[in-house]
Amino acid sequence: MKFSIRSIFISLIVSIMIVLLLQIFLQFDLVTSSAGSFVLNINANSTESANAVTSVVTYFRGFDTLGEVTILFLSIFGISLGLEGYRDKFNIFAYENSLLKIAVDTLFPLIVLFGVYIIIHGHLSPGGGFQGGVIIASAFLLMFLAKSNDFSLKHNILELAESLSGAGFILLGVLSILIINRFLGNFLPLGKIGELFSGGVIPLIYIFVSIKVSAEITSLVEYFIRIKDVK
């Protein structure tokens, strides 16, 4: 079937007209549920975190976060195990442009700054360790794309950062088991809601998660960019 831009536009316009007719006849509106206010009520009593999603991810469901991080680690581990023998020192992007290189030098600190901001404000505003970690990894991805063979990362450092942060995550959980008898429970002073140093143990967990995620995604992209001649 041949597909052109014109047919996409025509089907778009037709479907928007159908939506308009449906809106007139059926009176659609957003359905609000009651689960959100329930979670917000519990959150106000237990953790002093302004972002309720954060306290769900790291406090109520901390064990599930450990599972997610383990799944990510296993996928990167499988990729590195399968592709280790085929690594080349050359980048597949052979595009050389001095303008791009100079501009990327300016952009890299800005993107890393944005990622760090997202991480350390994870308990105050939308975002958190996973999102900020992927933003930092995308800054490294930009460096890989722009400076083809001038930029390289040592895999030892990436693996060291990843394993240290994972060990730190688990050690934090074990420490809280020893102190208050709950995995990833809060044993630090809570502080006041809405301030930077509040939320107890949540920012620490997010810093560990962000280092782990950024190291993993960076090494994934590095593997994909440098493989050559898979038989």
Binding site: I92, P126, G127, V134, S138, L141, L220, I227
Partner: peptide, 28 residues
């Protein structure tokens, strides 16, 4: 907004670049 931020970084940035890199490897 949390999910929106994740989708903006992963769905629009990283996964697109990974797909393009894979296509480039296959082409070469």
């Amino acid at each position: 907004p949390d999910v929106a931020l994740t989708e903006a970084v992963i769905g629009t940035g990283v996964s697109g670049v990974v797909f393009l890199v894979t296509l480039l490897q296959i082409r070469s």
